[in-house]
Design a protein around this nucleic acid. Structure first.
Lengths: 188, 188
DNA sequence: GATTCAAGCAAACAACTGTTCGTTTAATAA
DNA sequence: TTATTAAACGAACAGTTGTTTGCTTGAATC
C-alpha cells in the first residue's frame, strides 16, 4: 500500500476513535512511525486528510446506488438493495463510514458546501427509490423522508457495538437487520 | 436562571454545533458575555461542563424509564412507552441529548467508566422490556438487542433534520415515528 | 460604617496546535 | 560519475489551548 494511503488510513482510525478535532497531526505521524514534518511530503494538510476520507466514501455510496439502479427494475427489490448497500458499507468500511458520518462538519469551505450538495442529491435518489417502493406496495400514505432518515440512522449503531461488529455470523446479522428495516418501511 | 446553568446551557449548544474538542472555553465565555477567567468562579473546568451535561441527561433517562416501569403493566404498552420516551427526549432536550450521544467519549476518568456503567445498566432495563414485549406478541425469535440498538439509533437523525425539528405538526411526527419503530419491532 | 464574599477582570502560564523551512539521506536517471 | 528527486528529519513559527493568579468591584451581612 502506498504511503499516502497508509497515512489516510491511520488518520481515519484516529478520527474515528477520538474525533477530528481531538486528533493531532503528531498523533497521525506517530501511528505511521514518521515525524510530523514528513507527513507534508505526502499530504497537503490536516483538512486534506478529512477531505480524502469523506469524499472517498461519498464516491463509494454514489457508485453503489448507481449499480443498484441499473441492477434492479422491481421497485421493492431496488429498495432492499439500497438497504443492503448501507448495511454492507457500514460493516466493510466501518472506520471511514464513521468518520464520514460524524466528522464531515469539520470540512472547510468550499469542500463543506460541495459535500452537502453531494449528500443532498444522494438523498434525492434514495428518496425516489423509497417512494416508488412504497407505491408498488400500496403504502404511499407513509412518510418516505422520515423512513429514509430512520433507515440511514438505524444502521449507524453497528460501528459502536463490538458485539455485532465482531459477530461470528455476519451474514445472519445482515439478514436480520435488513429484514427489520424492510419491515419498518413496508411491513404491517 | 442561575448563572451556572446559563453557562452549562451555552456550552451544550457549542458542543452540539462544533463538538467538545473544537469548542474553546473562550467560545463558551463569549456566548454568555463573560471573560474566560470569570467562568471559573462558577464551574470547575471544561470537563466539568461536559460531565454536567452528560450525567444530567443520564438522570433524565433513568427517571423516565422508572416512570414507564411503574405506569404500565402491559408488556406491549410498556414497550411503546419506552419508544415514546426516547422520541420525546430527543425533541424536548435536543441539544443536550445530542451532546450526550456524541461527546460522552471525551469524559475523563473516573467519570467515563461511571458513565459507561450507567448506560450498560440502562440498556439492560430496556432490553428486558423489549424481550417481554416480544414474548407477549409471540415474536420471541427476534433479536431483542439488535432491535434495541436500532431503536435508539433510528431516533438520532431527528436533531440533524431542520425539516422535522421545526415541523409545524410535532404530534404527527411523533406518532409516525413511534408507529414505524413499533412496526420494526413487532410488525409483520 | 466595617467586614465579608461572590463575581467580575487582565495578564500570564506552560503545553499543544498545524504548518514551514532548510537540510540530509538514499535511490534513480542521465 | 554526476545530477535529480522523493522522502525523511529537527527546529522553529505564530497562534490557540485550559487554567491560575492577583486584583477590583459592589452588594449583602454584621
Amino acid at each position: 500500500m502506498k504511503k499516502k494511503d497508509q497515512i489516510v488510513h491511520a488518520a481515519a482510525k484516529l478520527f474515528e476513535e477520538r474525533g477530528y478535532a481531538a486528533s493531532s497531526m503528531r498523533d497521525v505521524a506517530d501511528s505511521v512511525n514518521l515525524t510530523v514534518s514528513s507527513l507534508y511530503n505526502h499530504i497537503k494538510g490536516k483538512d486534506d486528510l478529512l477531505r480524502l476520507i469523506c469524499f472517498g466514501n461519498a464516491e463509494k455510496f454514489h457508485d453503489g446506488i448507481t449499480k443498484v439502479e441499473h441492477a434492479h427494475q422491481d421497485h421493492e427489490e431496488r429498495m432492499r438493495a439500497v438497504v443492503r448497500l448501507h448495511i454492507l458499507m457500514s460493516l466493510e468500511h466501518s472506520t471511514t463510514v464513521t468518520v464520514f458520518n460524524d466528522e464531515w462538519r469539520h470540512l472547510q469551505e468550499p469542500h463543506l458546501s460541495f459535500f452537502k450538495e453531494l449528500r443532498r442529491s444522494y438523498e434525492q435518489r434514495v428518496l425516489r427509490i423509497i417512494k416508488e417502493g412504497l407505491i408498488s406496495c400500496g403504502k404511499e400514505d407513509r412518510d418516505a423522508r422520515l423512513l429514509m432518515y430512520s433507515m440511514f440512522s438505524s444502521i449507524n449503531w453497528l460501528h459502536y457495538s463490538a458485539f455485532y461488529r465482531n459477530h461470528p455470523d455476519r451474514e445472519d446479522v445482515v439478514r436480520r437487520l435488513e429484514t427489520m428495516i424492510i419491515r419498518a418501511i413496508i411491513g404491517d
